[in-house]
């Protein structure tokens, strides 16, 4: 079984990477950890009452959760787990610690996808990934498929990837 880390910005489109990973490793059982980089509050009281599950509940949209469920059900036997986690460290070594703690074997990321901050405190994980000692796989981000003028982030985005027929 391999454990794979995928950086996510909670856009449903980014879940296509998960499918890609699953399709690229058809004979292997996978555990996938979707990781979002986000700074935590500096206030002590905030941290005192910090609960990760609540924090994630606020971040993740219902459609994103549904999409994750769709993937879980579709790849039930191959996918041993699909989790969402946040990384809040500041240094390269803390990211390495994070990878060790989760026993990450590989990192998949979109090569040329521009970083879009999901919320104010989000930060790009790519620099950390590039400097880490774990095997990295870059997948090409098909910008053409993302031509939709409006970032709607809806459930339908996960469907109909393989080219919509044009009349």
């Amino acid at each position: 079984m391999k454990t794979i880390l995928i950086p996510t910005d909670f856009q449903i489109k980014s879940l296509r990477l998960v499918r890609e990973v699953l399709q690229n490793n058809p004979d292997e059982e996978l555990k996938i950890i979707l990781t979002h980089g986000i700074y935590l509050s500096n206030s002590i009281t905030d941290l005192l009452f910090f609960s990760k599950s609540k924090f994630l509940d606020e971040l993740v949209t219902e459609d994103f959760n549904t999409s994750c469920d769709l993937i879980r059900n579709t790849y039930e036997s191959q996918l041993k787990g699909l989790f969402i986690d946040t990384f809040s460290g500041l240094t390269k070594s803390s990211f390495q610690n994070f990878l060790n703690a989760h026993q990450i074997d590989e990192i998949y990321y979109f090569d040329n996808k521009p970083f879009v901050a999901y919320c104010k405190k989000s930060f790009d994980l790519k620099p950390y990934i590039l400097k880490s000692k774990v095997k990295q796989v870059a997948i090409k981000w098909d910008a053409k498929a993302q031509s939709s003028s409006k970032e709607s982030n809806q459930l339908s985005e996960i469907f109909f990837i393989h080219g919509q027929m044009t009349s």
């Binding site: 959760n65 549904t66 059900n73 579709t74 339908s156 469907f159 109909f160 919509q164």
Partner: peptide
């Protein structure tokens, strides 16, 4: 006007989801 219509089916947690998308 009879442009293609995409229909998707999937199963989320405890729901069957149908997506019908037109242009």
């Amino acid at each position: 006007d009879n442009k293609p219509v995409n229909v998707g089916v999937g199963v989320a947690d405890k729901h069957v989801v149908f997506i019908i998308k037109d242009q």
